[in-house]
């Protein structure tokens, strides 16, 4: 070993960042399995988690291929340290109650849907176009399903409206980070591999505004956006997620089944 750090390409880092978003949110949503308020939602949440994990697998596998350093999708998912994860803070937020989890999913899916639509139609990268072709349709389902729930909760009972309003207060200031991108993302945007995330903001805002209007919710102004995930600065909860996610590989290194 010479000790020289491997220089990673922008493309590797951007794909890794996307993979981390999907893995961490998938892990969070899968915590609902067996705990949802009704059977339909238990299936629904497990299915959405499965979509996210499936998307993350394809992304990690591609990141590993770009890196070409012999690391596998599993190495990338399970054997990195907390500061090396590039996911946004929104996806690591705790599940809270059902309203929190559904709103978090809506915020994320309303961003990823136009993101994948752009990739599928415009990207110069064929592998990402293939991943996007599936993901955009899966994300459309998430937007619809979670959007319908936000309307039901907001325009439902006094209690349900109270809960979804509390979720908006707790989570809305994490949404700005979706549009901040990173140096790696910006370079990929210049090469037309990935979209310039800032250009997706009007679509996201229109989706959220439309759903909130039906849900009798106000879209709050964000005075102090919460950021840091894109440079590996995570909240306290991130370590807890990784402790559970990586438990097997840390306890029994190289375990396979």
């Amino acid at each position: 070993m010479t000790g020289a750090a491997i220089t990673h390409s922008h493309q590797f880092e951007a794909v890794l960042q996307l993979a981390d978003d999907h893995l961490i949110l998938g892990q969070r949503v899968s915590e609902w399995c067996g705990h949802a308020p009704m059977l339909e939602e238990d299936l629904g949440l497990a299915n959405m988690a499965l979509d996210l994990l499936g998307q993350s697998r394809a992304l990690y596998a591609y990141a590993a291929e770009i890196e070409g350093a012999g690391r596998s999708e599993d190495d990338l998912a399970f054997l990195r340290l907390e500061r090396q994860y590039l996911n946004c803070l929104l996806v690591e937020r705790p599940n809270g109650d059902f309203a929190h989890s559904i709103l978090r999913q809506l915020y994320f899916a309303a961003f990823m849907h136009p993101f994948w639509q752009w990739v599928s139609a415009n990207s110069t990268d064929e592998t990402l176009r293939g991943i996007a072709g599936k993901a955009e349709k899966e994300m459309a389902y998430h937007v619809r399903h979670c959007g319908e729930w936000v309307v039901r909760l907001g325009d439902g009972t006094e209690k349900s409206a109270h809960r979804i309003k509390a979720a908006v207060v707790a989570l809305h200031h994490y949404t700005d980070e979706l549009f901040q991108g990173s140096a790696a993302m910006a370079t990929c945007a210049e090469d037309a591999i990935l979209p310039d995330v800032e250009t997706l903001r009007p679509v996201w805002t229109a989706t959220i505004t439309n759903i909130f209007a039906q849900a009798l919710l106000e879209v709050p102004d964000v005075a102090h956006p919460q950021t840091g995930g894109r440079i590996g600065e995570h909240g306290e909860e991130m370590g807890h997620i990784l402790a559970e996610l990586q438990y097997m590989q840390r306890t029994y290194p190289n375990l396979q089944w």
Partner: peptide, 25 residues
Amino acid sequence: MALFGETVITCPRCGSSETTKVSEF
């Protein structure tokens, strides 16, 4: 993307289009 949008699904047994969605999943 249409909220509460319903596509008409035909019953595979009797062919009726009088069907309702129980669960998206």
